[in-house]
Simulated assay, not measured.
Amino acid sequence: MSDIIIRRQHGKSLAEARASAEHMAAELKEEFDLDYIWIGNVMRFKRPGVAGELSVNDQTVALNIRLGLLLFALKPAIEREIHRFFDENFPS
C-alpha cells in the first residue's frame, strides 16, 4: 500500500470550500469512476485499488489516499493529477 497525503489552505468560506470539493469529486467520479459519500465535512471515496477521504474546514482542505498494490507504480502520475485538481479547485 502507498499513501498520498495533501493539505492546503484555501482562503474560502466553508460553503465555498465544500462546493469546490464537490465539484472536484464529481470530476473524479466521471473520470475515474470513484464512488463517494459525504459524512459531515468529510467526503469518503473508493474504487477498486483506491480509498481515501477529503476533509474541508473553513481554513484547509486535506486529502488522504491509500493506493493498492496495482496502482503503486502510478503514484507519481496520480499525485500530479491530484495537484492539478487542487490547483484548479483550491488555488493558493
Rank of each mutant, 00 (worst) to 15 (best):
R84C: 02
N57G: 12
M24S: 04
R47H: 03
N89D: 14
R84S: 13
E88D: 11
L69E: 14
N64Q: 10
L69P: 09
P48A: 05
R80Q: 13
A19F: 02
S55T: 14
F86C: 03
V61D: 03
R44A: 02
L28V: 06
Q59P: 00
K29P: 01
I37G: 01
E27G: 07
R47I: 02
H23D: 14
F86K: 07
R84Q: 14
L28H: 08
E31K: 15
M43D: 05
D33L: 11
F85T: 00
A77N: 09
H23A: 15
I65A: 02
K75L: 10
S20C: 15
E31G: 06
F45Q: 11
M43I: 11
R18V: 07
D87V: 12
P76W: 04
R80D: 11
Y36C: 06
F90T: 01
E79K: 10
V50W: 04
A19E: 10
P76S: 03
L71G: 04
L71F: 11
K46H: 13
A25T: 06
D58C: 08
R47P: 01
R80F: 10
F85M: 13
T60A: 14
A21G: 05
G40C: 09
A73I: 12
A62L: 07
P48F: 03
F85S: 12
A73P: 10
G68A: 01
K46P: 02
D87L: 12
I82E: 12
W38C: 08
L69N: 12
I39R: 14
G40M: 06
I39F: 04
N89H: 15
F45V: 13
L74H: 00
A77L: 15
L67W: 04
H83S: 06
I65W: 01
V42D: 07
A51C: 08
L28W: 07
T60F: 13
N64P: 00
E81M: 11
S55L: 08
A19P: 00
L74M: 10
F72P: 00
L74V: 02
L71E: 03
A73L: 15
E53P: 00
R47M: 05
I65C: 03
G49S: 11
A21Q: 12
K75S: 05
R84Y: 08
N41K: 09
S20I: 05
Y36T: 04
R84D: 13
F72W: 10
F86V: 08
L28C: 09
F86G: 04
